[in-house]
Amino acid sequence: MKLISTVVAALFCAHSYAGSLPLTPHLYVQGNAHMQVQPDQAVIRVAITQKSKSLPEAKTTVDDIMANAIAIAKSHHIRVDDIHAEQLNVYRQTRYNRTTNQEEFEGFRVSRALTLTLKKLEDYPVLLQKLVDAGINEFNNTQFEVSNRSTLMKDLNKAAIKDAKLAAKELASDFEVKLDGLYSVSFSPMETPRTPYARAESMKLMHASSGNVEQAYNTGALTLNAKVYAVYTIDN
């Protein structure tokens, strides 16, 4: 019986750590929620890089390819606000000659980066091919996203809060104690060395269907997650 009392005390009444937990008996729980959604837009990051000993020649080539790439993006109904062409970057390249012990000029490396937000995912494969044909030679990263992410996350946060309430009731019931009230809540982990209690199964919201990814390189579904951390005091 004494051992059980010691375990309960360790769970409910640890020292306050950085002011995030109360000194009175309490429960520290974690609420979780997740949702799988289909992406409905893609952020495409590409670039054109040209090397030449003639700087004007390299710059002209890069500018022409970039102009064509922007025209291609507009032809796929990408808005001007979703087209971001960066400034020209120029690097003078040299190579160390071990025979002469001197740096030798090799040429100029000229590049420009382009970021596009495509909101018609079925155009993704065709758009990439057109960019390649236009002379784009660097594909840095494509990030698939959902346009209504903020709205979905609000719903997920509410579900995570509901899950935290259930976790608190579940834990209180297991130890046959009564919840007194909510002490604090945060969407970031509390400053404590202890791990919060979480239910075995987190709240799962219904699948949210957005874009048609079957034709967009089979990108698959995205998983959105929300977590909330709550401290409840218990009735002595």
Rank of each mutant, 00 (worst) to 15 (best):
P196K: 06
A226W: 01
G107N: 03
K120T: 15
R199M: 12
V7Q: 05
D82G: 00
G19C: 07
Q215A: 12
V29E: 02
N236W: 02
A10R: 09
K169A: 14
T24E: 11
F108T: 11
V228M: 04
F187V: 11
D40G: 10
A33I: 01
F105N: 10
E214Q: 13
E145A: 11
A198W: 11
L23P: 00
L55P: 00
S16A: 15
R112F: 06
D133P: 00
A9T: 06
L27Y: 01
S111R: 13
E103W: 15
L127I: 07
A33K: 01
P193S: 03
V8T: 03
A172R: 14
A200N: 13
A216T: 04
A47Y: 01
K2T: 12
R98K: 14
A58W: 01
Q215K: 14
L128V: 07
S147T: 14
S173C: 07
S20R: 02
Q215L: 11
L23T: 06
T99L: 09
A71K: 13
T151A: 13
N212D: 09
S186F: 11
N218C: 10
V62I: 12
S16K: 11
A167F: 07
S186N: 15
G211V: 03
D235V: 00
A113R: 15
A159Y: 01
V7C: 05
G31V: 02
N218T: 12
T117I: 13
R79C: 00
D174F: 09
L11F: 04
A200P: 03
L166E: 14
L121Y: 11
Q36W: 03
P39G: 06
K2G: 10
E145Y: 10
V90P: 06
L127D: 02
I83G: 10
D63R: 07
Q30A: 11
L128E: 08
A73M: 09
M203C: 03
A160L: 08
P39S: 07
V132F: 12
L23K: 07
S5N: 10
V213G: 05
L152Q: 11
A71L: 08
A9K: 11
S173F: 04
I234D: 03
F187E: 14
D63E: 08
A134I: 04
